[in-house]
Design a protein around this nucleic acid. Structure first.
Lengths: 280, 280
DNA sequence: AATTATCTATCACTTTGAATGATGGAAAAC
DNA sequence: GTTTTCCATCATTCAAAGTGATAGATAATT
């Protein structure tokens, strides 16, 4: 059995055939046009024939392309109906692919998912944690059905509904004056690039004239809080995520001023994903 | 239309079901076992159900797995029959995916492919050039149907038939004594790692007590010869590839001693690829 | 009971090839 | 003639797939 055809290429082909142009397909599939060109070329190489006549205002199917369209759409339909049959046979419906920021996953989702389980014991959910930017990417490319991200969210590209209002708090070990952590707290423990809380924290520090603060990147919420409790520096997290642990470990928590510290978490989904009606 | 299923996962699933074990499938698919584990897990996650009962001496299909096997093998069959129909409609048979070293492609293949075209005007061939090590990898993983590589070849893994006997020659600008290039020729122009001619050339130089020779890596045969003609250093190529150009550019060519300079080029194919009967 | 053989799971690391984004040219619309 | 639209090309980036080493579990062998 040789390598089977890559279904991504086939789906791309059908989309181009539908829209009548490479750029139209790239818009529909949320990717850049050069990507479409490459995919179609790979497919043409593999099949050994030209699928589209490019030129005047778009891409028109060749005779060979028309033949291909018929067979390929049938085969893909077949494949997706098999998938549907199987996902239904296994766990009721297809699992809801949910994404969330690390902090949301820790502070908000346990209760939410427990409730969901009560109402619909059969519902299956998969959860992936990532920073906001990455989550938006994943939803945009249909690798997730929905995700909880920090606002604001581009309403043109996504369907977003407010889910939680978070207040950011700064956490550090020991005391501090009314204005914030002690000057010697010159290390900010934060997630990597793409984390919107980190961006907010840095904006706040800059406004306080503390542009010199070093950032140490950590991979998990627990690590961040643990290191803060060890006196390595301060960290900025939503209050909801801090409640669990801050006092127990002798950490001081102080809310950020509203300008930087009020952040709304939205539940976003792709505008083209219909039928998703999550009530919270 | 959500992302369609990845056919690699499906093919892997069927192979595991056939062989009854992950490790058996990994042997059959020429990859490591952990890879199979990961693929099956991805598929199980996607479908939302366990496909195999692992444990005692292998992996046994679950009830869900048996259901899946039926649907998936039908869908894949369908897909491959569509592909066959299309490749036949386009260019006669599926194109022969051929690989060759840069030098072989330049010196030997033009004639070979011309002959092929005479005999079978309909045959379509795609050619990819790469160093020997990479070519063997590509054949091993079924990304190529066959490739011309420098010997010796592991007979356990590949089906190899001798194709050409090559004599390596050293090329450099200007004169030189009987034993080799002048001492000031202390730069060897060669392909990157994985090139067997380069390895042979370096072995030869080492044996001559010239371990100090610097290697400059180049990306193409033409570049190598061009740079040699510009006096940048010497290069080692098969005589067949040197004939075309060496004299025209004032390059001196001297064969390497037999111990290092006699290299047989083999045509290799995967042992499991049957029906391929290329006569040269 | 201890030993060996055979499987799968896990993990840190590497590799690869698909995706991006910027650019160019060609054809059509204004 | 200018602008717009569309596809091809290319260097670069990055995520996902693959690798290789190791652990753990179960069955077979001595």
């Amino acid at each position: 059995m040789p390598q089977p055809l890559d279904t991504t290429l086939l789906a791309t082909f059908l989309t181009v055939a539908e829209t009548g142009s490479f750029s139209g397909a790239s818009a529909k599939l949320n990717c850049v046009q050069s990507n479409i060109t490459a995919r179609i070329r790979r497919l043409e190489d593999r099949l050994g024939g030209r699928l589209f006549e490019r030129g005047r205002g778009g891409a028109a199917l060749t005779a060979f392309g028309r033949l291909a369209q018929k067979g390929i759409s049938e085969a893909l339909d077949r494949l997706s109906s098999v998938e549907k049959e199987l996902t239904e046979a296994s766990g009721g419906a297809a699992p809801l692919r949910l994404g969330a920021m690390e902090t949301t996953a820790a502070a908000r989702l346990p209760r939410l998912l427990a409730e969901l389980r009560q109402h619909c014991p059969d519902a299956s959910v998969t959860l992936q944690t990532a920073p906001t930017a990455r989550l938006l990417d994943l939803v945009w490319n249909r690798r997730l059905d929905a995700a909880f991200v920090a606002g604001p969210v581009d309403g043109e590209r996504f369907h977003a509904t407010p889910a939680f209002d978070e207040t950011l708090v700064a956490l550090w070990l020991g005391g501090g004056d009314a204005t914030g952590p002690a000057p010697q707290m010159d290390t900010l423990l934060a997630f990597g690039e793409g984390c919107s809380y980190r961006a907010a924290a840095q904006a706040w520090l800059r406004q306080q004239g503390r542009a010199d603060v070093q950032v140490t990147e950590m991979g998990s919420l627990d690590a961040m809080i643990g290191c803060a409790a060890a006196g390595m520096g301060m960290t900025v997290v939503p209050q909801s995520a801090a409640i669990r642990v801050s006092e127990a470990k002798g950490l001081t928590a102080r809310p950020l001023p509203a300008a930087h510290g009020k952040i709304t978490t939205y539940l976003v989904s792709d505008v083209s994903t219909l039928g998703t009606d999550l009530r919270i």
